[in-house]
């Protein structure tokens, strides 16, 4: 970090003094919340939802206009005291399960959720049988 410091000092020392004199406390969050808990919920929720326009991005990442609108909706709904489940229901009833990066466990996704663990169990069972006493 030494090099950075030298550069910084040389180029910006005056500006620096000016800047440091100003206290920086005002909330500058793009999506301001009243509690850190709400903030965390917002980050978790948007990162687990898929953007429908740029389909390889999540809602937190996407720069698409729709993603922006949906982020604002989620922000407002969290501020209005909606639970995560209510927000997810709101989105799923409009866009379907596609919007969830974590599919819900139901009859059609049982293979998705149980499959890997079943395979591991079968493997271990084979190994136990194969090994001799």
């Amino acid at each position: 970090m030494k090099i950075f410091w030298d550069d910084a000092f040389r180029v910006c020392s005056i500006a620096l003094l000016l800047v440091l004199a100003i206290p920086a406390f005002a909330s500058k969050d793009l999506y301001p919340f009243s509690t850190p808990d709400q903030q965390n919920r917002f980050y978790t929720l948007t990162s687990e939802l898929r953007c429908l326009v740029c389909q390889n991005e999540n809602l937190a990442e996407s720069n698409a206009a729709l993603a922006n609108d949906l982020r604002e909706q989620i922000h407002t709904q969290i501020l209005n005291g909606k639970t995560d489940n209510e927000i997810i229901h709101y989105l799923v009833s409009r866009y379907g399960h596609f919007i969830l990066y974590r599919p819900p466990l139901d009859a059609s996704t049982i293979g998705l959720w149980a499959g890997p663990f079943l395979i591991l169990l079968i493997g271990i069972f084979y190994l136990v049988k194969r090994a001799q006493k």
Partner: peptide, 19 residues
């Protein structure tokens, strides 16, 4: 024709890590 779903990071975090 059972619908469109997405499988992403949260799924893999939940399943891959315990394995």
């Amino acid at each position: 024709h059972l619908g469109n779903i997405s499988v992403g990071e949260p799924y893999f975090n939940l399943v891959f890590i315990p394995i």
